[in-house]
Amino acid sequence: MTPVVPEPRAPRPRRNRLPRAGLVPVCVGVLALTAAGCADPASGQGAPAAAASSPGSPHSPGLPGTDAGAPTAAAPDSSATGPAPASKGAGAGRGPGGTASGLCRAADLGISLSDADPGAGQIHYTVRLTNKGASSCTLGGFPGVSLLRKDGSVIGKPADREGASHGTRTLAPGKSTGFTLHTHNKGMDDGGCWEKPALLKVYPPGLKDALTLRTDAPEVCGDTFRTSAVGG
């Protein structure tokens, strides 16, 4: 048999192809542009490293700023304004005798009783209080007056107040002021008379310490026993 020889095929036309080496730079450039355009601006991913610190940012290296976590300067403490001034009331209002408002002390006062001054059925006695201290002091208001027996018990009742107050009197050393005791003359009233005292007890106005004077006067009659204010 005669062998069959295949007919030769016509050659295919060759296509012009770009060299593979030329594709690499083009692809790299395309990928870089794609990555830059597809980065999410909200997430901040894919942003250039230079954009991490913008000009004027507190964290920008080499620029002044305040760290958000740094403590701020403390406000001045209004309580630290220095010590409060000393009160002017400390020790104020003290008199020469050391008592409040310059009152005379009972220890610095002398007491005396005048003779009876009768008139129209009334009898008056003047009680004098003298400043025996070295400094001036004051007295004002009504005293407390009682008549005592030898054992210290009270005869009758303390003297009632009579008349108005005469204000405060300032007594220089050696000076005196006084008040008046008032009762009725014996036999003028049906009430009779109290027994005669052994002591006259006087509380100067505003003081808790009393003065005592050994005396048998006044003899109170008609249940009338009254005292005026100091200075009256």
Rank of each mutant, 00 (worst) to 15 (best):
P204H: 05
A217R: 14
E195G: 01
G140I: 09
K186N: 06
H182P: 02
F179W: 11
L199I: 01
R128G: 10
G187T: 13
T177D: 05
S146L: 08
S146V: 00
D209A: 04
G187E: 15
A164E: 13
T215S: 00
L200A: 01
C137V: 12
L211M: 10
A159D: 03
D151T: 08
P118A: 11
K150C: 04
T215N: 00
P158I: 11
T177Q: 08
G133F: 02
T138C: 07
G133W: 02
K208Q: 14
K132H: 11
V154W: 02
G174P: 08
D160P: 00
C137T: 13
F179K: 11
G192A: 09
G191S: 15
G192V: 07
I123G: 05
T130Q: 02
D209Q: 11
D216V: 01
S176M: 04
K186L: 05
N185A: 13
F179H: 09
T138M: 10
G141S: 13
L211C: 03
A164T: 10
D209W: 03
Q122V: 11
N185G: 13
L200N: 02
E162H: 12
G192H: 11
S146M: 06
G141T: 13
P205C: 10
T183C: 09
R128V: 11
T170E: 05
L199V: 02
A210D: 15
G119Y: 00
G206S: 15
T170L: 08
V202T: 09
F179N: 05
L207E: 14
G206I: 07
A198N: 05
P197M: 05
D189Q: 07
K132T: 08
S146N: 03
V145T: 03
G140C: 07
T138L: 11
K150E: 10
K132I: 01
K157I: 13
K186I: 07
H124T: 07
D190K: 14
S135T: 08
A159S: 01
L213C: 03
P173M: 04
H182F: 10
P158T: 09
I123M: 09
M188T: 13
L129G: 06
P158M: 12
L148G: 00
G191A: 15
D216L: 03
D190E: 14
E195A: 00
L139Q: 12
V127N: 01
M188I: 13
A210E: 15
L200V: 00
N131V: 12
E195C: 03
K201N: 03
D209I: 00
G191F: 15
L139V: 08
G140Q: 06
L147M: 06
G140A: 08
Q122D: 09
A198H: 04
A120C: 04
V202W: 15
T126L: 10
A210Q: 15
L211D: 06
L200T: 01
R214A: 14
S136D: 05
I123F: 01
R149M: 06
